[in-house]
Nucleic acid binder design. Structure first.
Length: 412
RNA sequence: CGGGGCAUAGUGUAAUGGCAGCACGAGUCCCUUGGGAGGAUUUACUCUGGGUUCGAAUCCCAGUGCCCCGACCA
């Protein structure tokens, strides 16, 4: 993509009132725009990142048998009354339509998915089944904060699994833990599985937490046995497993999985008939990942003083191509154009800084801020040296590489 | 939902109760290309509603919004 045509622009100054790093960097670099507290627009580059994260999540969910659907964001009051969450879910957005009919904006989808599954699941032969969606969630948080980490409207993947009994759920639950670990590591994050307090309907849950100084959760980790527990449920000073010493860390919750049991199945009469002709309650699990929060968490972890450092797996473009002196030097211009086409032909994502009226300092500062993993510079100097300068965003090492080797090198 | 801070041009900031200014940006022109360069010229601003005052960006009251701390986070 030509940078001169890019809708968003970087800002010279960091937003002065933002403290959280992901908010500062994503706003300054023009990845997102804030409409009101906790509500963001995703601009062209930001949406690319979000989509890349979604694709990783999709791939891992599909791999373990998840089937993607899309449920409505709007749902009728009656469904929420059935589960007791019309009144019981503090952050639920409620609204009135014509004829004073009342609705909720989806804050979670048990109230939609359970009656949906009830229409199709009748027999033990129909189980297990896993349905997921990637959708905008709405929660009227009392205090949105920290950029993308806690919003009133955010992108979430929620999967619901349905089983004939607890043993089957337990078996699947382990698969999800493995899939979640893959997702986070593919996104460049080291997420720890943390035991945590559950909500109203389950005694405990498992959270995936990324340790960073700007997290809002506190996690106790055992130095000996790799047990991690949320402060919510545990506040002693020794590991309950092995009496090892505990370390306290701040962390961001990027995923949360629950065993729901039959609570929602009972509310909606979701049952199946077993081999003996007996009617049984379906057992459910629920598995969430905050897609937009994940994007914020990645920035919290991957950055330096100059800007963002995107992991290659989710970067909007792999390469930032920057000519220097292209308006004066025809060869610089033509070689850069040629390389741009060659990279595109190989499907290597490339942002071409073709802005002619911009000083080199500004271009390089933009490149650092925007954070593409590979920076390529072509100038009279690099052409004299036989090629193009290659620098990775996460290192200070600079090397000159001939054009014929370059494309091949970048394909790796 | 309790507490604190802040609110001036598109952005960032200045102005004892007395002519709202500067920088960046944006427009036009010139110049410039290895770390936000320079010149000429144009452009645009006091969150909302009340009050005090001869006079309010400035003081007072209310509201709204943003950020931060806490509570909350199925």
């Amino acid at each position: 993509m030509y940078q001169s045509t890019l809708f968003s622009k970087t800002k010279k100054e960091t937003p002065p009132d933002e403290v959280s790093l992901n908010a500062q960097l994503l706003l300054q670099a023009g990845y997102v725009d804030k409409l009101v507290a906790g509500v963001y627009s995703y601009l062209p580059l930001g949406l690319k990142v979000l989509n890349n994260i979604q694709e990783i999540v999709r791939a891992e969910m599909n791999k373990i048998g998840g089937q993607e659907i899309l449920m409505p964001a709007l749902s009728p009051k009656a469904n929420w009354q059935k589960t007791g969450r019309w009144e019981g879910f503090d952050v639920l957005f409620k609204l009135k339509g014509s004829g004073d009919k009342e609705y909720a904006l989806g804050a979670s989808h048990e109230e939609v998915v359970t009656p949906l599954v009830d229409k199709y699941v009748n027999s033990y032969r129909d189980l297990p089944v896993s349905l997921y969606q990637i959708q905008t969630k709405f929660r009227d948080e009392p205090r949105p904060k920290s950029g993308l980490l806690r919003g009133r409207e955010f992108s979430m993947k929620d999967l619901y699994s349905f089983h004939r009994d607890q043993a089957d759920l337990d078996k699947y639950y382990e698969k999800f833990i493995a899939a979640y670990k893959n997702i986070f590591s593919r996104c460049g994050l080291d997420a720890k599985l943390v035991k945590s307090g559950g909500g109203t309907f389950s005694k405990f849950s498992d959270e995936f937490q990324v340790f960073t100084p700007h997290g809002e959760d506190i996690v106790f980790s055992c130095s000996k046995c790799d047990l991690h527990q949320n402060k919510e449920i545990f506040a002693g000073d020794k590991c309950p497993n092995c009496q090892g010493k505990l370390e306290e860390n701040k962390a961001i919750e990027v995923g949360n999985i629950f065993k729901l049991g039959s609570k929602y199945a009972k509310d909606f009469g979701l049952t199946y008939t077993d081999e003996k002709g007996q009617e049984q309650d379906v057992v459910m699990g629920c598995y969430g990942i905050g897609i937009s929060r994940l994007m914020g968490a990645i920035v919290e972890v991957h950055h330096d003083e100059a800007g963002i450092i995107w992991p290659a797996s989710i970067t909007p473009f792999k390469v930032h191509l920057i000519p220097i002196g292209a308006d004066k030097n025809d060869e610089v211009k033509s070689e850069t154009d040629k390389l741009y086409k060659a990279l595109q032909a190989k499907n290597i994502g490339v942002l071409y800084d073709d802005r002619l009226d911009m000083g080199v300092g500004q271009k390089l500062a933009d490149a650092d801020l925007l954070g593409m993993p590979v920076r390529l510079i072509i100038s009279a100097k690099t052409l004299e040296n036989g090629g193009c300068e290659v620098k990775r965003r996460d290192s200070d090492k600079v090397e000159i590489m001939p054009f014929d080797k370059l494309v091949e090198h970048l394909e790796k």
